[in-house]
Amino acid sequence: MIVTPRIFARLAAIAILAVLLQLSFFSRVELFHTSADVLPAVVVSLGLLGGSMTGAVAGFSIGFLVDCLLVAPLGGFSLVLLGVGYLAGLFRERFEIHSALVPPLTCMGLTLFAELGFAALQVMLGVHAPVSVLIVRDMLLKTIYAFFLAWPIYFGLRRALRPALVEEPKVTRRRQPTVLGRT
């Protein structure tokens, strides 16, 4: 990704919009007693589009903003989303994305990674209450929601950041003209 001042402004706007939408909308809408978490999906999409550095920096910034707005201990969300963004970017650098299913599946896997990472972090920091097994249901449903939300998020972000993307030209096979009577 070629980050010009204009693209940087777009990335900042995307991060702020994603955080506002998450806190004011997605976190407050429950389907089957679980709300969706779009932030890992946004960070994964940015990582897949821009590479490991873009993913890591975007993850850290989005996490930092969430920590600030929730007045939670700083660094928790930042650390988890930084890892998510970096892994998504690394995937993009090592493998080719040749199927439309790759972004949703990556979002799904890395959302689960984010949920597990956040749980591990909380356990390490000390949870002063019993933990329900329903937390597993919450994690799995969030992962499934991420699969469906990844489509609009990834393709929307790709459209918004198109001028900055370094995309390999598509190889289109030309059909050989056929002449009647010959194969």
């Binding site: 490991s52 550095m53 890591a56 920096v57 850290f60 996490g63 930092f64 903003l65 920590d67 600030c68 707005l69 007045v71 201990p73 700083l74 660094g75 928790g76 930042s78 650390l79 930084l82 970096y86 920091l125």
Partner: peptide, 30 residues
């Protein structure tokens, strides 16, 4: 270097602000 810096930054923030809010910064952003 950037990745290491970000990871160290996250851990530092966690260490400094865990148990009590970071005060001014979070209040300002909020």
């Amino acid at each position: 270097a950037v990745l290491t810096l970000l990871i160290i930054g996250s851990f530092l923030l966690l260490t400094i602000t865990y148990g009590h809010s970071s005060g001014g910064l979070q209040r300002g952003v909020s």
